[in-house]
């Protein structure tokens, strides 16, 4: 490990102040991802600002029926929270499908959003990687790409975002509260993560001293159902090949509201707007909640997919997973 400075943040403002002015700074919360990367030499921050003791570990039920989740709420605690289990099953299931119990006991909400890709080349210091060392090239392109992106990738990076939780939050229209040097701002979760473009080293729109303090979930209308489906190589402890977070409200067999996000397919949690448009149909009539529409919706979303040599299977797999998730939700409805 390379030597680094360690600062214990006194309070939330102090955390941002402590992180300001450094080239290489990282906030330390659960440490489940950052510490691994520091050991591997993938991350080498000059200073760590420890935010694990800040009072950001509460889950609050908001008057409008929504939920505010503090940035250092542990994944295990969030998954077990009664309001999450009752109102946002998609989120509870996404959390529980990620990592292991031990990791979830430490990992935090903010840290989960900011976890970095599991691309093998990103972790392998002996290979070029534009995300780890900008400008060195992408070793995955032309290499082993089974786990990589089929949507929104660039010629510079084909990595995927590894989070399950973030996919659920993308489908829930979550809002992320960020404290920076110029004060507090709110960023829609779907805009927090970037597509790689020509700056794949930037996972998010945040600057290094921006601190995520909370994630807010808006309330879901009465009658809305949600679920998370994750396809992976074994029954537990594995990253998603493809995952689907779906939020659906059907009335009289007609889709009234739908939000879908995909995991394992892109550099960010992928909000499937095209599929949603197909499912919503016309604002007046809506679309029938049937298999044919589900399939058309999934295919519309995946029309733009650009699979690599090793991951063409993800396109039909993502389609089937979307269809199966929607079918499951609409059946629950009946």
């Amino acid at each position: 490990m390379i030597p680094f400075d360690y600062r214990l943040a006194p309070d939330v403002d102090g955390a941002v102040a402590a992180a300001t002015g450094w080239g290489g700074v990282a906030f330390l919360a659960g440490g489940t991802n950052l510490v691994d990367h520091m050991k591997l030499g993938v991350a080498a921050p000059e200073v760590l600002v420890d935010i694990s003791r800040l009072p950001l570990d509460a889950v609050e039920e908001l008057p409008d029926g929504g939920l505010r989740i503090g940035a250092t709420v542990r994944n295990s605690d969030l998954a077990a929270h009664p309001a999450v289990r009752r109102d946002y099953p998609v989120l509870a299931r996404a959390l529980l499908s990620g990592a292991s119990g031990q990791v979830r006991n430490l990992a935090t909400t903010g840290g989960n959003l900011l976890q970095r890709t599991r691309c093998a080349y990103f972790q392998d210091l002996s290979t070029p990687c534009n995300k780890r060392e900008p400008g060195t090239g992408c070793s995955a392109i032309g290499g082993y790409t089974r786990q990589h992106a089929i949507l929104g990738a660039s010629a510079h990076c084909v990595a995927t975002h590894p989070s399950d939780m973030a996919v659920a939050m993308a489908a829930l229209d979550a809002q992320v509260t960020v404290l920076g040097t110029s004060g507090r701002r709110v960023i829609p979760l779907v805009e927090l993560h970037r597509l790689p473009g020509d700056e794949p080293h930037r996972d998010t729109v945040l600057s290094p001293s921006d601190l995520i303090t909370a994630v807010e979930l808006p309330p879901l209308p009465e009658g809305t159902r949600s679920l998370y489906r994750k396809v992976r190589d074994r029954a537990s402890y594995a990253f998603a090949l493809v995952s689907v977070a779906a939020v659906l409200r059907v009335e009289d067999g007609v889709v009234r509201d739908v939000r879908i996000a995909l995991g394992g397919v892109a550099h960010k949690p992928w909000r499937a707007r095209r599929a949603e448009d197909v499912l919503r149909g016309s604002p007046v009539d809506g679309s029938p909640a049937d298999e044919e529409v589900f399939r058309r919706a999934a295919e519309a979303e995946l029309a733009g997919a650009a699979p690599l040599a090793g991951n063409g299977f993800k396109v039909p797999l993502a389609r089937n997973t979307v269809v199966s998730a929607l079918r499951g939700l609409s059946r629950e409805e009946r």
Binding site: L96, Y228, R229
Partner: peptide
Amino acid sequence: PGGVSNTTHGEG
């Protein structure tokens, strides 16, 4: 199949 990943409830 897929276990607690909730991938299926038996359909397919």
